[in-house]
Amino acid sequence: MPSNPDWISAVTLAALLLCTSGFPLPDASTDSPNGDPSGEEGVTEWPVDALKTVLKAALYTTERHRKEFEAEFQGMLDYDFLDKYRIPSLPALCPFSNFSKEACFIRLLQGLRVYSVLLKHVAQEFPNSFIPIETRHYVNLLITEIKEKINAPGQVSVLTNSQEEQLLRDVNNSDNFHRKMTAHSILYKLHHFLIRGKRVIDKREKPRRGMHNRGVEKNNEI
């Protein structure tokens, strides 16, 4: 765990805010409009630790973006319209099946590094909003925490300067409206990227039902 005082204060603040203010975690209605094949309702609560506290705070921040978007467009554009806004080089979501927790952590780490760069574009488009600043802060904290969970974090490649520059060029546009909508879409996609990762990892942490039943049968025999 890092000993940086800023990191400690940020996580402590996030934990206090979440505990005292009752920040809501987005429910199943905020999942991707393409549908959730897991059949699970809502987002399962996790025991509190640094990673999960920061993740919950990050999700609350991206959920605030939804409210700001809806307030800005006043029903003229639906929030889920952003799902159709295509952005090059976005990371893939963690799949619900045939994917280990370690593999999902690796995909989250790789994806969050991409989003950390793309959030620079968001900050440029929304200079008067704290949301892109807060979101990037939590994304960077998540990167640090996820590296602690991975067996060999050094094997996950770091983006080069040229790759970062290419990501920002890909989302740049001479049209002001398209640049702004791209920024909105980055926050939208990140929100669902985090929700999916949380659900997949949570699912991997649950004991298998078959193993549980076998344990109950064994205890009954004793």
Results as ranks from 00 to 15, higher is better:
95 P>W: 02
154 G>F: 04
76 M>Q: 15
155 Q>T: 14
154 G>K: 08
138 Y>Q: 12
34 N>L: 13
136 R>I: 10
75 G>N: 06
163 Q>H: 05
134 E>G: 06
122 V>T: 01
121 H>V: 03
32 S>K: 00
64 R>G: 08
53 T>P: 02
37 P>G: 05
115 Y>K: 01
134 E>N: 09
154 G>A: 11
78 D>K: 01
154 G>Y: 03
139 V>L: 03
55 L>M: 06
83 D>T: 09
71 A>C: 09
47 P>M: 09
32 S>T: 15
139 V>N: 01
87 I>Q: 02
100 S>W: 00
147 K>G: 04
109 L>C: 02
143 I>C: 11
71 A>E: 11
153 P>G: 05
161 N>K: 13
110 Q>K: 09
59 L>P: 00
103 A>L: 06
72 E>R: 05
48 V>C: 11
53 T>K: 02
64 R>W: 13
40 E>R: 09
122 V>D: 00
76 M>A: 14
150 I>F: 09
154 G>H: 07
66 R>Q: 12
77 L>I: 14
159 L>S: 04
157 S>M: 15
125 E>H: 08
45 E>M: 08
45 E>W: 09
151 N>R: 15
142 L>E: 02
111 G>H: 01
156 V>H: 05
127 P>K: 04
128 N>S: 14
33 P>M: 04
78 D>Y: 00
157 S>H: 14
90 L>R: 01
85 Y>H: 13
40 E>H: 10
94 C>T: 06
67 K>Q: 12
59 L>G: 00
150 I>R: 02
138 Y>G: 11
134 E>T: 13
70 E>R: 02
67 K>P: 10
44 T>C: 12
109 L>N: 02
48 V>L: 09
156 V>D: 05
123 A>Q: 05
90 L>K: 01
94 C>L: 03
60 Y>M: 13
135 T>A: 12
163 Q>W: 06
140 N>V: 12
129 S>I: 03
147 K>F: 06
56 K>T: 11
